[in-house]
């Protein structure tokens, strides 16, 4: 099963490689991983998407907890939460495709942030499924490149993952 784990950790050199090293050493898989400093620059917030049965996820969270730099973590999949991923996608936009892609971007509530006479760059935010759907809707020959951040997640309600 897919799990999305949110980690609050010390913003120190090497912390990321400890997490990555833990996953490779113990044979866990990482589907995506995104990390950046928080409003407190001494802390980083990481969102990690992984798959596994309950025993594996329990081990993953325990092993992550053991890392000295990890301050707190939560398995967001255990409760209601919101996920968002951002994508930049460069598509060919010539002739009749220009208008069609513009319409498609509007439907998906994305925005075109760069225009040349033959291409667009589209910025789009949403769940990973929505981004997948957009990619599916554009003819594959028109896609020049896609860049995705991987999902970030946050739990609903007033409680937060903070110190």
């Amino acid at each position: 099963m897919r799990h999305i784990i949110s980690i609050l950790m010390e913003n120190e050199a090497g912390a990321l490689s400890r997490v990555a090293g833990l996953f490779s050493a113990r044979g866990y898989n990482i589907e995506s991983l995104t990390v950046a400093p928080t409003e407190d620059p001494t802390l980083s917030r990481m969102t990690l998407v992984t798959r596994g049965n309950e025993e594996i996820i329990e081990q993953i969270t325990k092993q992550l907890h053991k890392l000295i730099e990890v301050v707190k973590l939560a398995d967001l999949s255990e409760g209601v939460h919101i996920e968002r991923e951002m994508m930049l996608i460069k598509v060919l936009a010539k002739g009749s495709h220009r208008a069609e892609i513009k319409r498609l971007v509007d439907i998906f509530r994305g925005s075109i942030i760069d225009v040349t006479d033959s291409s667009y760059i589209v910025e789009m935010t949403g769940t990973s499924d929505k981004l997948d759907a957009f990619i599916g809707a554009v003819h594959e020959d028109l896609i020049v490149e896609t860049v995705r951040t991987g999902p970030s997640g946050i739990a609903r309600g007033t409680k937060g993952l903070s110190l």
């Binding site: 050199a13 090497g14 490689s17 400890r18 090293g21 050493a25 000295i68």
Partner: peptide, 12 residues
């Protein structure tokens, strides 16, 4: 990097 997988923690 070399010792990371076999230490409780390490510092530079």
């Amino acid at each position: 990097g070399i010792t990371r997988p076999c230490v409780k923690h390490n510092f530079l």
